[in-house]
Nucleic acid binder design. Sequence first.
DNA 1: CGAAGGCTTGATTCAGATCAATTCTTGTGG
DNA 2: CCACAAGAATTGATCTGAATCAAGCCTTCG
Lengths: 254, 254
Amino acid sequence: MDRYAPAAFGGILTFGGINLSRAESALLARQLGAIQTHRPNVRLLSEGDMLDRPRLIRSGWACRVRFLSDGRRQILNYYLPGDILGLSLDPDPVALAGYASLTRLMTMEVGTLRTLALDRPDEYPELAAACRRMKVHEEFYLLAQITRIGRQKAYERVAHLLLEFYSRLSRTGLAEGASFQLPLTQEALADGLGLSAVHVNRTFKLLKRKNYVRVERGTVTLLEREALAEMCGFREPEDLFQVDTVPHKTAVSF
Amino acid sequence: MDRYAPAAFGGILTFGGINLSRAESALLARQLGAIQTHRPNVRLLSEGDMLDRPRLIRSGWACRVRFLSDGRRQILNYYLPGDILGLSLDPDPVALAGYASLTRLMTMEVGTLRTLALDRPDEYPELAAACRRMKVHEEFYLLAQITRIGRQKAYERVAHLLLEFYSRLSRTGLAEGASFQLPLTQEALADGLGLSAVHVNRTFKLLKRKNYVRVERGTVTLLEREALAEMCGFREPEDLFQVDTVPHKTAVSF
DNA sequence: CGAAGGCTTGATTCAGATCAATTCTTGTGG
DNA sequence: CCACAAGAATTGATCTGAATCAAGCCTTCG
């Protein structure tokens, strides 16, 4: 059941929610690699591995993760359908953390695309730009992750992460209205949020009671998206690139 | 009093602890830009700003930071002497968070170096490699930051961050034996560690009592570096690149 | 149908936050 | 060189958000 979108719509290639033109998609279509499936909760790459074979996620969710010696687990970031596992524009790239599947996963090898983006960016400008943009987004989400777990309350963290998921899935066409499929266990959320699974559960209960969200069978509905975003200070990465329209948000003191 | 090292030793350029050859340093030496000083706790760049003018830190410490609407502050990463503020290899780079000084700061404009690294990497291979390496280190430290604040105890967090500072300063020649100058307030540490300033203070007291560290006048001495690293799971980024020597550390379960 | 994994809930504990003084430093101006 | 003011560091007392422990209850799915 690959309910989570294909990353190519009618011949248009999409990476991390960024569409290539039909023309460039056509050029690249025959460069796509083999498809693999992976079961949930398996290690895909280990710290220190070479990242020369990035894989595009066609369905399912994955993450980067680090373990402490006593078994504590920290999820560093999540990868959703359309994201690329192990994308690096470095000529000699190394995994800075482990990569693991969180659900059943279907991936496609895109090592060739990586090579093209690196060696002939001029021939594939959109591909190269999409790769760079994906890296920027990845860093943006890392920074969001730090702010969430460093300075936000449990209910803010959960709200913020749900908004991030919604935003990212929307870009890939995987949200329906205000709803999306969330295939993660509460434990997988907890390990990303720096909380215990029990407390994630209670926090969901709180958000439901306050009518911020509805959750039924793995489907999350954000009922008050504006209010939710306001409450937890959520911002889209796109906001950063439209500096001309919005006047500069004069930030808090010093 | 710029007690914190110059980033150039006898004509050798050093970026983030990575030395260029004498030859390439000589080629680049005349491309260095103007020097500026900045007072402590001022905003250097805001979210969304163009990053076309990176600045090398010659002395002092800085950080990237994000504020919540009620004034809570999260420090995302720290920049030490020899680091570059706003380094990006993207053609059209944007600040993903604010940049601020934490101490008095002396910086040097290195926009020209950025341009050379981008446009003529073949002529300046070491410069280009150093820039890439710095970006990798930066991401490595972001991941460490996430693990610290997401899943470690206060005393582990503090120990881990001190080890990181020691490691980074050592590479630039700014550590003396087991000691280094730590010019940050406990509040600046707290905002990076996701703790309150009071608790940082108490945690220092604990680490002192256990004879892990000594602190006097802004000088930190790591008394039991091995034990400390073991206790908090600290690892050097270099470990990742020497996969051949060390057999693969089979990590915790799945 | 049964087993296993995930979810939910209650009871209890605890790490770290918050509040409130007091000292200690450090930089400044006279 | 000294006095002081402002900012840091330190300490105590108290509170609280989230962890932990421990059942029970749902869903899946073979």
